[in-house]
């Protein structure tokens, strides 16, 4: 990916667009330092930096929007929302690490209409990686919110007793939604194969040939309607799909990704409940499939404040 490939910014009040990843608002790290024993050394280093170079608070403000929030990132409603640049760090706290910082920053805008909140997350990337197959990984982005909005859990995807609500969008799921379930035929269009089990015996009987489908693994879903998955986590490695899926969204590739993720303010049990006037925390993670990013091999952000306009 290249850093400068165009994300739309003309005419938008982009505070802090010239900031580099090193100048992150890292005060949030101090808030959570106690929760993350492993990052003590990091936090200490940052404390010194905060003392010598105070930075103005930056945060994401979700503007109030009348009516349905557009899933189209080019809709003018989005231009009216302020974009905040979220600097990213390479995930190197737990192995396996991402080898390099390939996506240095995200640009985030937010809108809410009293019923739902939507985030437009954009980043530059020169290749669209939307195929999930052997040794091939897809681009993706995730938004993380604390389930208890009064707290700021560990940046480590929450912690025991500090659950987080995560919404992940994957480029491969977007293709499933746009073009129908993608599988081996799409990954290897020139390969030859016998008739698929479902063609021979119908969808239901054919399930036995798809072990992960029988096990109800959401990865194997053949009827995906949303490219965004609702998950919960209580620390690294604990990510689990929510029983009730309520997040929606849409991602479009145009010299980079433009992804809208949307969730009800009252999202339900085990998820984050938001309301107008609330300020809570939000964090992000992004994957460049072409660089081998997947799972813990990712770019991630610190917590930033998220404010919902009253």
């Amino acid at each position: 990916m290249t850093r400068d490939a165009g994300t739309p910014e003309a005419g938008t009040p982009d505070a802090g667009t010239d900031r580099t990843p090193a100048q992150v608002d890292r005060r949030g790290f101090l808030k959570v330092a106690g929760a993350v024993a492993a990052s003590t050394a990091v936090a200490t280093g940052i404390a010194a930096r905060v003392l010598t170079r105070p930075e103005p608070a930056t945060h994401v403000v979700a503007r109030r929007h009348e009516g349905d929030i557009p899933a189209d990132h080019q809709h003018r409603a989005w231009a009216r929302a302020q974009a905040w640049v979220v600097p990213l760090l390479v995930q190197n706290l737990v192995a396996p690490h991402a080898p390099a910082l390939v996506i240095p920053e995200l640009r985030v805008r937010a809108l809410h209409n009293g019923e739902r909140i939507a985030l437009l997350v954009e980043w530059a990337d020169d290749a669209e990686d939307a195929v999930d197959s052997m040794a091939r990984f897809r681009d993706a982005v995730a938004v993380q919110l604390p389930v208890d909005t009064a707290t700021t859990p560990g940046v480590t995807m929450g912690a025991v007793n500090q659950p987080v609500h995560i919404m992940q969008w994957r480029a491969a799921w977007q293709r499933d939604v746009d073009r129908g379930r993608q599988g081996v035929r799409e990954a290897f269009p020139n390969s030859f194969r016998d008739a698929a089990p479902e063609d021979l015996m119908g969808e239901e009987a054919a399930q036995q040939f798809y072990p992960a489908l029988v096990a109800n693994n959401p990865m194997a879903r053949r009827d995906r309607t949303s490219p965004v998955e609702d998950l919960s986590a209580v620390g690294f490695g604990s990510l689990t799909a929510q029983d009730k899926q309520t997040a929606t969204g849409r991602g479009v590739f145009d010299r980079g990704w433009h992804v809208v993720l949307s969730t009800p303010l009252a999202a339900g049990e085990h998820k984050t409940s938001l309301h107008p006037g609330l300020t809570t925390s939000i964090a992000f993670a992004v994957w460049d499939g072409g660089a081998g990013n997947r799972g813990s091999r990712k770019q991630w952000s610190n917590w930033t404040d998220l404010e919902l306009e009253a």
Partner: peptide, 11 residues
């Protein structure tokens, strides 16, 4: 261990 190209998990 091998990756299932249809169910998108390893087997």
């Amino acid at each position: 261990v091998m990756y299932n190209n249809e169910t998108r998990v390893s087997e």
